[in-house]
Design a binder for these strands. Structure first.
Length: 404
DNA sequence: GATCCGTGGCG
DNA sequence: TCGCCAAGGAT
């Protein structure tokens, strides 16, 4: 009974639920909302590259990239990815490192690894052709209930529902549904309503219209109800506080992780990069500087390099569930450390490698604070570092840095 | 069912 | 400045 629920003020909650001015049954309300959504979507939908194709593979790629990621962010990645991997077979036969390289900067890198495995699954089990059957789609690595419904409805015109964050928000508002959508009962209710919406000859378009509405008008804060095609049928709007829905539980604070990053550079201004340590699965398959978690013993050879290094500052990198406080140290080395997988990499080669943002953040900090930046950073890294120095501190968004 | 996984934009 | 959160899925 400790669940937090935002009980509506009873007096407010009793407000009349709009419409039935002429007493139409609920099925007519559903039809009316669907028609209004379709008419609005047909006119106002945003242009997106994956809306110019019916290739199920392309739509699959777009749906995976769009998981927890905004449309504007995805577009350039999508175009580059499809240009490089034009088919299921091309993706399946690629090296994982190349797939991750094209995913660099997009985040949630497990999506890329699963998509790669998914392509191998489709090649082996379905001869490279995406299956239509929702259950067969669900069996593909990285494809869950949402993505299976999206591919089935958008690529194959099947009457399958989708439920993502947008649809969840739109539906809880339309029916003024209480309870955290993460709870099973509420979730089942929402899937059921989503299914009723998708039971239509234009299911794929309706699904996209629901998502588009949530992304453009029915936004989390300050929704633009006056412009909404479904405003007269929306119960949250009738109540007067649409942004009260959905009733999500507050999020927990991210844990703090303390790390030391050891930036090793050789005489040619190359920087050592290697696989992340075993206790850092988050960037598995990608390349990072030497990273040591606080409290964990280092090998003798690393300890030696660590003693020979000097501190040059710290950076903070914020992720969804963790906040990394990273002490950055640098050391000059003539040869790669023994018994360490990895290599010295030229700064201008980073763009073709599988590099997470944290690598760029650490290298930029090291380049900026190095006593001889001309030898340890590329022109672009110096530019980034100096522009950050001019601003005085934080780079965009989630990362801050400071001198020690 | 709870936790974990990246990054960028915005109010 | 900082918290919120986005076309989720796997474990």
């Amino acid at each position: 009974m400790s669940k937090r629920r935002n009980k509506l003020d009873p007096a407010v909650a009793r407000a009349p639920a709009t419409q039935p001015t002429k007493g139409p049954p609920e099925t007519n309300r559903l039809d009316r909302i669907r028609d209004a959504l379709l008419a609005h979507f047909d006119v106002h939908q945003r242009a997106m590259p994956w809306r110019q194709t019916r290739d199920p593979y392309a739509i699959w790629v777009s749906e995976v990239m769009l998981q927890q990621t905004r449309v504007e962010t995805v577009i350039p990645y999508y175009l580059r990815f499809l240009s490089r991997f034009e088919s299921v077979r091309a993706l399946a036969e690629a090296d994982e490192a190349d797939v991750l390289a094209l995913w660099s900067g997009l985040g949630y890198y497990r999506r890329a690894r699963m998509l790669h495995q998914g392509a191998q699954h489709v090649l082996k089990e379905h001869r490279g052709e995406l299956p239509k059957d929702p259950d067969a789609l669900l069996a593909i690595p990285g494809v869950g209930r949402y993505t299976a419904g999206a591919i089935a409805s958008i690529a194959f015109d099947l009457r399958e529902p989708v439920l993502d964050g947008n649809v969840e928000r739109v539906l809880t508002r339309l029916d003024a549904i209480h309870g955290d959508p993460q709870e099973k009962d509420t979730r089942n209710t929402l899937w059921s309503i989503a299914r009723s919406f998708s039971d239509h000859s234009r299911a794929g378009t309706i699904n996209q219209a629901l998502m588009e509405l949530g992304a453009t008008l029915c936004t989390p804060t300050s929704p633009q109800c006056l412009l909404c095609p479904a405003r007269t049928d929306c119960r949250a709007n009738a109540i007067g506080e649409p942004s009260r829905f959905p009733e999500k539980a507050p999020k927990k604070a991210p844990r703090v992780e303390r790390w030391t990053a050891l930036v090793l550079h050789d005489r040619d201004a190359k920087v050592w990069l290697g696989p992340p340590p075993a206790n850092l699965d988050r960037w598995k398959g990608m390349l990072v500087p030497l990273l040591l978690r606080e409290g964990e013993a280092e090998t003798p050879s690393v300890a030696g390099v660590l003693r020979a290094s000097r501190p040059i500052g710290s950076v903070t990198h914020v992720l969804t569930h963790a906040r990394m406080e990273i002490s950055v140290r640098i050391a000059a080395l003539s040869e790669p450390p023994d018994a360490l997988e990895g290599a010295f990499v030229a700064a201008d080669a980073l763009d073709s490698l599988a590099i997470p943002k944290v690598t760029r953040v650490i290298l930029a900090a090291a380049a900026q604070r190095s006593s001889s930046p001309d030898k340890t950073a590329s022109a672009s890294a110096r530019k980034n570092a100096s522009s950050r120095a001019r601003k005085g501190r934080a780079t965009k968004g989630s990362t801050t840095s400071k001198r020690t």
